[in-house]
């Protein structure tokens, strides 16, 4: 057994833990700039997390163990996902643990428990958030699966590392199926990470919040974990997109130099992707809940067109 891949695995976790807040800060910063405000700086999320960790917890009277267990679970899921997605290198010992479908289901289990935690306190807001979150998730899931299906057609695999390697060694440049799948993935990722136009991460306006409504009653270290995991999820979805569609730069071997250049490329691509995210978020208004069927329907349509164009055109 080689030791080297394990070093990379640990490196990936550290990158995930450290860079995810910076990435969230970067997105916030871009957003502030684009709206003509001055930003709190790149490292504000760190300061927020630290502050929350040092505070005491105020727990609702009837909170059960599910409410207290959920933050740890959500955090654990995010870390595990970070071991599987090829962020820096495809040579990961844990990569075989999960393919893309499992990965999506991992996020689903975090969502399941967050929704339960939302209902645990017994407030109207919590239930509302859970109900909406699960509705959106059920509409997003078919589109996500269809996108995965299209992605898996080219390489004949659903394993993320394998997919990345297939693209890295591929010749075909104009793959309409991949373009469609990417667009579909983008829409689904927006829905899954709760960004505008599906959910507004910054809102605390009672009737429009979805994810925030579920975690409304959290405080102290619980809230810190949930927030941190949320940032990690955003980061992971972006790196997932990179690994599946733009993997150029990800190290195929465990070479130290390649890993460093992979880190550099990752930063570059994330920086650019954040710009696109912010453009979408500033350009669009939040949608009505029942307009989301059309939004996610379009995602499904795009993914299906990708699948069809693979069979018809390629």
């Amino acid at each position: 057994m080689k030791l080297y891949p394990f070093v990379i695995e640990i490196l990936q976790i550290l990158v995930l833990l450290a860079i995810a807040p910076v990435f969230a800060g970067w997105v916030k910063m871009l957003k502030c700039w684009s709206q003509g405000r001055s930003s709190p700086g790149l490292f504000q999320p760190y300061r927020d997390i630290r502050k929350l960790f040092s505070k005491d917890v105020v727990l609702a009277e009837n909170a059960s163990w599910i409410f207290r267990f959920t933050p740890y679970l959500v955090f654990g899921v995010a870390l595990l996902a970070g071991c599987i997605i090829p962020i820096l290198s495809t040579d990961l010992p844990l990569a075989a643990t999960a393919d893309v479908i499992v990965l999506v289901s991992l996020f689903a289990i975090a969502r399941f428990f967050t929704a339960l935690a939302g209902m645990d306190i017994g407030t109207a807001f919590g239930g509302m958030g859970s109900s909406r979150e699960m509705t959106i998730a059920s509409l997003a899931e078919p589109a996500m699966l269809m996108a995965i299906f299209t992605m898996s057609l080219a390489g004949g695999t659903t394993s993320l590392s394998q997919m990345t390697q297939v693209i890295l060694s591929g010749q075909s440049v104009f793959r309409p199926s991949m373009a469609f799948a990417f667009l579909a993935f983008l829409l689904v990722a927006i829905a899954e990470t709760g960004r505008i136009p599906v959910d507004n991460p910054a809102t605390h306006l009672e009737l429009t919040m979805i994810h925030e409504a579920m975690i409304l009653e959290y405080s102290g270290r619980y809230l810190a974990l949930v927030e941190w995991a949320g940032m990690m999820k955003l980061f992971l979805f972006f790196t997932l997109g990179i690994a599946a569609f733009f993997p150029w730069g990800i190290a195929a071997s465990g070479d130290l130099y390649a890993v460093f250049s992979a880190f550099f490329f990752m930063g570059l691509k994330l920086g650019i992707e954040a710009v696109f995210l912010v453009l979408i978020e500033t350009g669009l208004a939040k949608m009505r809940l029942f307009r989301l069927t059309e939004f996610l329907g379009s995602a499904f349509l795009l993914a299906t067109l990708g699948m069809l164009s693979y069979f018809i055109l390629e």
């Binding site: 005491d56 105020v58 727990l59 609702a60 270290r221």
Partner: peptide
């Protein structure tokens, strides 16, 4: 760390 039980904030 202390955990205070308190009424629901909502």
């Amino acid at each position: 760390g202390k955990i205070h039980r308190a009424p629901v904030w909502d």
